[in-house]
Simulated scan of single mutants.
Amino acid sequence: ITAFSTLMEPQMCGLLAKCLQFHIVGAFTVSLGVAAFCNFAVAKPRKQAYAGFYRNYDCMKDSEEMREAGIFQSAK
């Protein structure tokens, strides 16, 4: 009888709420980490690449090169 008295009783009330609270906090933390990683690993380098491209971009020169290459059929 002493062996059965040392066992803990199972939690019957609030078990779902306790598990959900743990998993919601974990999911929020993981999603925040993934968002920060995507921002610093993908978005910032992409923005810097676009800024570097358009810093020295000359649309008139580019259109002249395309016209000379024959891309524009109607512009001779």
Rank of each mutant, 00 (worst) to 15 (best):
T2R: 05
F4V: 04
L7K: 08
E9N: 14
P10S: 10
P10C: 04
M12D: 00
C13A: 07
G14M: 06
L15W: 05
L16F: 10
K18R: 10
C19E: 10
L20A: 07
L20V: 05
F22T: 05
I24M: 06
V25Y: 03
V25D: 11
G26V: 07
G26W: 13
T29Y: 12
T29F: 12
V30Y: 12
V30M: 14
S31H: 09
S31L: 15
L32N: 12
G33L: 15
V34W: 11
V34C: 08
N39H: 06
F40V: 10
F40W: 04
A41Y: 09
V42L: 14
A43M: 06
K44G: 00
P45C: 03
R46W: 10
K47H: 04
A49E: 13
Y50I: 14
A51N: 14
A51V: 06
G52M: 12
F53W: 13
R55E: 13
R55D: 15
Y57L: 07
D58A: 10
C59N: 09
K61C: 03
D62I: 00
S63G: 01
E64L: 14
E64K: 06
E65Q: 04
A69G: 03
A69N: 03
G70A: 05
G70C: 05
Q73H: 13
Q73Y: 09
K76E: 13
